[in-house]
Amino acid sequence: MIQKFFSGLYELFLGRPIPANFTNDYREVVFPNTGLQLFLITLAIVLLYYYVLNRIMSTGLYKTQHWVMFLILNAIIAFAIPIIQVNSNGIETHSYTYMFAFVNTIYSLILFFLFSILFKRGSVQAWTTPMKWPNKK
C-alpha cells in the first residue's frame, strides 16, 4: 500500500525509474523510504519551529525570514535524502536520481507549508508566521 502510494506519487512526475533494471529497488525501497523520511523530517522541523523554538524556548525566531530559513533547511535535507537512498542501495546514479531529488525538494516545500498551516495555531510567538491566515484572533 505505502509502496504503491509513494511510487505513484513520485512516478507521477518522474515517470518510470531509469535505469529500468532497478525499478524494484526504487519502488520497493527508495520511494517509500524517501517519502516516509520526507514526511517525518518535515513534520519534525515544523514542530521544532513552532513548538520548541517559538513556544517553549521563545527564541525570537518568529519572523517570516526565520520560517523561510527552516523551509530551506528542510528543502536541502529533502534534496539529500534521495541521493543518499539511491547510493546506499547500490543503485546506479543517473540523471533520473537528480530529477527525483528535485521533485522531492518541491514536495518538501509543499509539505512544509501544509504542516505550518496545520500547526502554527498552537505556537505562542509564531502563530502568524508566515501569515495570519487561516487563524483569526
Binding site: V29, P32, N33, L36, Q37, L40, I41, L43, A44, L47, L48, Y51, V52, I56, Q85, G122
Partner: peptide, 20 residues
C-alpha cells in the same frame, strides 16, 4: 505536543530501518 514532536522526530530516525 512537544512529546509528540520529539517522538515523531525520533521515530523519523528509524524510518529507513522501518521502511526496509
Amino acid at each position: 505536543a512537544l512529546f509528540l514532536g520529539v517522538s515523531l522526530v525520533l521515530s523519523g530516525c528509524y524510518t529507513k530501518q522501518n521502511g526496509e
